[in-house]
Design a binder for these strands. Sequence first.
DNA 1: TTTT
DNA 2: TTTT
Lengths: 165, 165, 165, 165
Amino acid sequence: MAGVNKVILIGNLGADPEVRYMPSGDAVANVRIATSDTWKDKNTGERQERTEWHNVVFFGKVAEIVKQYVHKGSKIYVEGKLRTRKWQGQDGQDRYTTEVVVDMNGTMQMLDSRSGGGVGSSVPFDDAPAYQSSRGGGRPQSSSPAPSSVGSSQGAADFDDDIPF
Amino acid sequence: MAGVNKVILIGNLGADPEVRYMPSGDAVANVRIATSDTWKDKNTGERQERTEWHNVVFFGKVAEIVKQYVHKGSKIYVEGKLRTRKWQGQDGQDRYTTEVVVDMNGTMQMLDSRSGGGVGSSVPFDDAPAYQSSRGGGRPQSSSPAPSSVGSSQGAADFDDDIPF
Amino acid sequence: MAGVNKVILIGNLGADPEVRYMPSGDAVANVRIATSDTWKDKNTGERQERTEWHNVVFFGKVAEIVKQYVHKGSKIYVEGKLRTRKWQGQDGQDRYTTEVVVDMNGTMQMLDSRSGGGVGSSVPFDDAPAYQSSRGGGRPQSSSPAPSSVGSSQGAADFDDDIPF
Amino acid sequence: MAGVNKVILIGNLGADPEVRYMPSGDAVANVRIATSDTWKDKNTGERQERTEWHNVVFFGKVAEIVKQYVHKGSKIYVEGKLRTRKWQGQDGQDRYTTEVVVDMNGTMQMLDSRSGGGVGSSVPFDDAPAYQSSRGGGRPQSSSPAPSSVGSSQGAADFDDDIPF
DNA sequence: TTTT
DNA sequence: TTTT
């Protein structure tokens, strides 16, 4: 059947990313991103603003980048897809949470002028076992500069499969 | 602050739209749209498919179009934005529902080859008081052909403010 | 520096694809896609229509799919990027042509209801040496059904690297 | 027939905008935006970069904003549509130029951290007769802060029709 | 011609 | 909870 399921966001992180690791060693990073709409009220003419908060989940390589270079307040561009997860509340009832998933088919870009420049630790990924995942077979590099873009989608540089990032 | 909050979907309706009217007379149409991902399992090589269901809410003029020309099984293109609503469960606890909102800044296109052709009733909108909304001051026309596109966004024809559609 | 360079089109082919092969054996398919804008003239109230023609170039696997299943009149969804090529006119002067490039980072979807159903030739790809490209190591299959989506982008099923499609 | 014709760009201006005015008084702003792709060469493993230059044309209110707040080096988000113009070379032959058009259905966002902050002149628009266009009937304001977003599209605040911006 |  |  196919179809298109695409989300594009530009906004700021409300807090630092929360990173965890899958049994496979792959990283998963969760962030909250705020976008805001502003408009003038038709009647009062006063400026209105509504902030929308989005749950965004990064998988794999892009999750590592998020972990290293993105933090509270960062402005980022995100391209992903919608996914609604079902889970059980404490009362046993079904609950649903909709997230924007950014995996190897998605994209992330840092939009802050000095996007992580100089942020690169001299021992990057030493606490990121996910790096030895099947997708990345490369070796960690030292003093790596912060990439400003990750992903396989249009308009964002791809990261090789055999190089850390 | 601004930001970008955009969703693009192409999928099929799981059921006919549910339409209701605001006190103002504006129509609101809710639909469920399915998109599906297909891929081959890395290990087994078997084809996998995952269907994602999206709650989409149309407001105003585009809601009227959806009501008239879109139905169960219709394939449509939708451009809107994410919005998460908070509501109270019967147990008094907060629940959240994320929807794709398509308002005057969004777009809808019918993608079925014969997109509603001949569907135009000879007495269109006679049950759509919303039409006398502040946004549309025009008079209903008879035998109107089905538009295949509605909205103000790029790539989709705009509907005038003073003509039914 | 990075950046985003993305084009999304839904339109119909003005003619059958023109396919050629690179020295590497990779296929390249060129098509012309028409999109149209309709609007009502502010003064006369008459419906206006403007058709825009786009040059779209497909590379690699997606080019093979286009060759096999897409033809004059087909309605497709395309996600790619802009690229302007410089070339020499017969007069020796520089000319520029802007195209929408759909490569392994782009996407293509067939939107016709019966998207190529039954189109699958019993000897697919027999004239498509490109198939033995570095990206695809698989073997052609017979009687393959038409895929309705190709590409690595969000919302479109990916085609494996080791299976024809 | 309809269709979708959408372009999304994030990039930097190569030079200050060139602004001119239509007989109607409406402003038109032309800019060149660079986006760049980076990837690693499959063989040498060396990082490659390709810069793409886009001609972007802004119409109406957004053209005024561009004129006032965007300049050489600015990083912006743009949502528009493709349009190919035909023109005559000095040799009388037809030439074609493809541009990204951003009109009232498009969007522009400034992405530099301090997006025009303090840029607002105390006498904004005094050289912008276009402002008395039919779309904007408002009066120029003094000391207006720079908006970071303009347009009617999803995810970007709309500017009222009756207020300068 | 921008930017990193 | 971000940002302007």
